[in-house]
Structure formats: structure tokens, C-alpha cells
Design a protein around this nucleic acid. Structure first.
Lengths: 157, 157
DNA sequence: ATCTGAATTAGAATAATTCTAATTAGTATT
DNA sequence: AATACTAATTAGAATTATTCTAATTCAGAT
């Protein structure tokens, strides 16, 4: 596997099964076997920002009977209970991100990797004019470009 | 139709057929009848940020033989030649935007309307830490909340 | 042990988009 | 003006991600 540590600014710590269940319960969800597996997979692959399908394939390793519909159901439940965020870049399959700190997403246009950039976007200081009367409750910043690894490779060529 | 003027911060001016063709040609594209219609529809409905399907329905009024595939082809061509931007919010159908000034998009979660907020996002001053080595070439800011009209209605209730 | 509602499952259905192969239109060349 | 060549358009099939449906299973409360 490629070394992608350098480009992942924040990664939630690896968690044990018990801790995963505790998180799910804290969020007000029943910690079923499938939810634990799905959330566990996501926490351990946070850097990859996996798609539902990628999560499904990995979840099957741990729980072969799990179905795609359940993966979607679980992810929806996790999103609704604020344990997970959806990432939408282009019209590609939705990616899932268990990093609930405020952060931006960066897509490397060479290799397709998605990275997290920590920070906060205050609507009023972000550089955009929020016209009077608009109430902004959420912001989402996506950036594109070239990641350090790909930039290096390009320089070499 | 609802009055949505108040929430649209920037709208490209209405353009005549000839001017539309000139724009297309300037961008290095052959101005075919279909492209003119598609781009014309988009310019005259910029506020609505229409989907391909909505553009298709309106384009049919002017050119009944036009096909959906052509609408997609035209939109792709316009995007590649920097006359139009795609807007991706959630996994909903792609919306199209002929406003090529840098701007953010705002989605009203009550009524679903998309508005443009003018401004510029400098990656380094946006509030997010761009780690060393990342080359950012594009940024995209999406905000969500309540638009003035919907906020008013809520206050009344 | 039984009931009840929530969760899970397989598979069908949907929606947006892309692909394919055939036709048509535009432009350049004789 | 006819010809040739390439790009654009078309209808419809195919694909992909996602959602829906109805039946089954599970977990916790009675």
C-alpha cells in the first residue's frame, strides 16, 4: 500500500470493538453487530474516505452475511447521529468520513486521493459575501489540486 | 413563479442569440444550433441553477427535436470550455451555472433554492490549514441554511 | 416464553448519467 | 456546387449508485 500518512492531516484513532459500540450507543443508536462492523471499518480506513461499496467489501471480511442495503442503512444512521459525514466530490459515489472535526476536503486530481485539511470556515470571513437575511448553518469546502506525492513524481519526470 | 430575485446575488445578463453564439465561438467551440439553445436556456435561467433535465425540458420548447444525450454533450462541452460550471450538492442531479465569477453556492434547506454568493476563497486565508506540499488549484465552497424568504415565513408561524 | 418494533436481508426498482452505433450537419476542398 | 471529412446529434441500450419493498430475524421489554 502507498504511504499516504503524510497527506492525512487528521485521523481518528483506531478503536477497539467495545469502544466502537460505546460511541454508537453514546450517539443514541443501538449498537448492532452490523453497525459496529461498518463504523469500525470506517474508523480504520478514515484516510481512504471509502465509498459504500468499499466499506461493504471490507465489512464482508468481518461479517460475510452483511448486505449492501444494511451498509447503506448503517451509514445513514451514523450520518443522522453525527458520527460520520458524507463527502460529495463531482458526481462520484458518496464517500464517508468519520472525522467530525471541522475540516475541508482536498482531492488530488492525479491520484484521486482525498485528504482532510483541518480548520474552520466562518461564513463571514471565508472570503464570500453572505447577503443580509441568509442564515448559514453549515459550510463545506472542497479543494482540488496535486498532492505532495504526485507533485514530487511530476517534478522527477 | 416565486420571487427569487432577492436571493440571487449575481446573474449574468440576458443575451441575444447572436451574442450567445459569439460567446460559444470565443470559447473555441463550434456554435451549433443545439449548443446555442442549451447555453441560452442556461443564461436565461441562471438563478435557478437548473439540472440537465430541466434544461432539456426548456430546450425542447425552442427546439423540439433536441435529445437528452445532446443536452449532456453540450453541457460537457460548455464546461470543458469554461463557459459553465457544474454544481454538486449532495448526490442530487448535477446543476449547471453559467456564472463564471468566483462564488460560493448556498442551498436553502427549506425550499431547495440555490443562490450564488460572490467572493473569492484564497486557500491560505480560508480558515483551513493547507499542509506543506499540497498545490491547490481550485476551491469550491458550499453553504447551507435558510434563505431570507424562508426565514421570514418561519418567523411568521 | 412471548410480544413488539427496529434492524437486516435479497432482490427489484429508480434516477442520473454514459455509452453505442447510426445518421446528420458543418466546414473545407476540389 | 459537388465531394469528402470530421464533428455533432440522435434514440435507445447500458451502467452505476442508490433507494425501495416485503419478508425475515433480532433484541429488549413484558
Amino acid at each position: 500500500m502507498k504511504d499516504v500518512k503524510a497527506r492525512t492531516v487528521f485521523v481518528p484513532p483506531h478503536r477497539e470493538r467495545g469502544a466502537v459500540d460505546a460511541c454508537i450507543a453514546e450517539a443514541g443508536l443501538r449498537p448492532t453487530a452490523q453497525r459496529s462492523v461498518v463504523y469500525g471499518v470506517l474508523l480504520n480506513h478514515a484516510k481512504e474516505h471509502p465509498t459504500a461499496d468499499e466499506i461493504f467489501m471490507q465489512a464482508k471480511v468481518e461479517k460475510p452475511e452483511i448486505s449492501m442495503a444494511t451498509v447503506y442503512n448503517c451509514l445513514d444512521a451514523l450520518v443522522k447521529h453525527h458520527l460520520v459525514k458524507q463527502v460529495h466530490l463531482d458526481r462520484a459515489a458518496t464517500r464517508y468520513c468519520p472525522n467530525m472535526h471541522e475540516h475541508a476536503h482536498f482531492l488530488c486530481e492525479e491520484c484521486g486521493e482525498v485528504s482532510d485539511f483541518e480548520g474552520t470556515a466562518k461564513p463571514r470571513t471565508s472570503g464570500f459575501k453572505v447577503p443580509k437575511g441568509f442564515q448559514v448553518t453549515q459550510t463545506e469546502m472542497n479543494m482540488r489540486g496535486v498532492c505532495p506525492d504526485c507533485a514530487k513524481q511530476e517534478a522527477t519526470r
